[in-house]
Design a protein around this nucleic acid. Structure first.
Lengths: 246, 246
DNA sequence: GGAGGGCCTTGATTTAGATCAAATGGGGGG
DNA sequence: CCCCCCATTTGATCTAAATCAAGGCCCTCC
């Protein structure tokens, strides 16, 4: 940032990779760092990668080279059963940190694929470990991110293990809404980046069931859906779907 | 350890909490540390706690005081839905590290309860963070443990999202078997510490369904079950349940 | 050692969601 | 710019697991 060079000579490359100037910094790995720490974290991101829709960032079994932070775009992670069945384990958007599953065993345990053109920042993990030994705030943030992923997973287990189809879809929509809102987008109107089948895979449902649940919500005026475009009309109503107790 | 005092004056309290002399050290937080590092980790465990069967270690909402490592015994963690429904998110045995879910938000997100008399080592988290900045091997081990928990969660999602009742139970039994084996117990014969209802909750099934699946396996001579006592008779057969493709 | 309650099994019936099927339409690639 | 493919919707039927029900066992607590 604040380049010492004349404006016309700004180092485009360093600009491109600086966390300190990234609008996502408060959602991403550098959240909570002061400017001195942020400057050091800037060094972490050595590279950026652009992925076309459909391209994979990594596949299960590949050795862990780096973690990745999403700069823009949308991705899914799929876990694979031996017999070929696969299941979407998560959807990722700007600011999310990817590859955490590979730290334990040294290689990735899921496929991660772009659902639209996506740009990611590459974060060499060994360097991240080194730097997080020097910067307690960075260490804390890394731990927070991993812990929050565990908590998210618990939520998905609860959803898959004890919720009805409509409850699952309501939870899914409210979660997406919240995440879009945190990124400055409308919480009530957004475009789904994934197919009904992918939603179903994530929610443990078949695509027809997802479609019927969408239609049911629409009939009850909780949402409007037209293909991938969703508008939430009645937040309290949608939340009430999650609490059938009353 | 190596006390400078005469043998008769061994400090019982420090002996009681020493990781370096714990038979679980290679399964637990100090796995992979050299003896110098191990000695410093010994300082981490400031306290041990005994829990009677049914007692809780922590409840959702309580602030994170420490992480816990199971020294002996057996526990479950339950996530709670607003409306009171709850679901078992995991079963824990000796060497497992508990409380990781609380790091992100500073308070626990699940209830963790002893299923039999259990002893845990208390590990103040802030001290663990401090020490892991000084000991890269400890840092790595902590990251490995958190990452492996994420991978385990992905496996549970796959199970809950796309497996039949019998597949789920087979996966569950094989997982337990493997974990008992890693701790030096028989992989083929063990006592379940949890009820059918708790198994069902973990697997997203009702207790009757669990019971029927047990009976089905027994009828096919894959296992013998008598109440909580399980003997696996046919490992290949049980694994084949998981791969219905052939 | 006995009694009581919780845990487990098994059977009958119901149901939510899967599966099978077919028509529609929209968006991306040529 | 148009066309074709594939995503989506909707309907009909099927099924795995849930639910409802009842009997028996075991284990624990007294």
């Amino acid at each position: 940032m604040k380049s010492k060079r004349a404006p016309s000579l700004i180092d485009i490359n360093s600009l491109r990779v600086a966390c300190s100037s990234c609008s996502l910094r408060e959602l991403c790995l550098p959240a909570g760092l002061d400017s001195g720490e942020m400057e050091r974290v800037d060094q972490l991101v050595t590279n950026r990668r652009k992925l076309r829709r459909g391209a994979d960032l990594y596949r299960a079994g590949e050795p862990l080279a780096a973690l990745f932070a999403i700069r823009s775009g949308f991705m899914k992670s799929c876990v694979l059963h031996d017999d070929g069945r696969e299941q979407v384990a998560g959807f990722h958007m700007a600011g999310d940190l990817l590859g955490l599953d590979a730290i334990g065993g040294g290689s990735h345990t899921c496929d991660t694929v772009a659902l639209e053109d996506t740009e990611v920042c590459e974060i060499p993990f060994s360097y991240l470990e080194k730097l997080s030994r020097e910067l307690p705030s960075l260490q804390q943030q890394l731990h927070r991110i991993m812990s929050r992923e565990i908590v998210r997973d618990y939520g998905v287990m609860l959803l898959l293990g004890s919720m009805s189809a409509e409850e699952r879809l309501a939870a899914f929509l409210l979660n997406l809404s919240q995440r879009f809102a945190a990124r400055g987008y409308s919480p009530s109107e957004f475009r789904l980046r994934m197919t009904r089948e992918e939603i179903g895979s994530y929610l443990g449902l078949k695509l027809e069931t997802v479609s019927r649940a969408f239609s049911g919500f629409q009939d009850r005026r909780l949402i409007e859906v037209r293909q991938k475009q969703v508008r939430i009309l009645d937040f309290p109503g949608l939340k009430a779907v999650l609490d059938p107790k009353r």
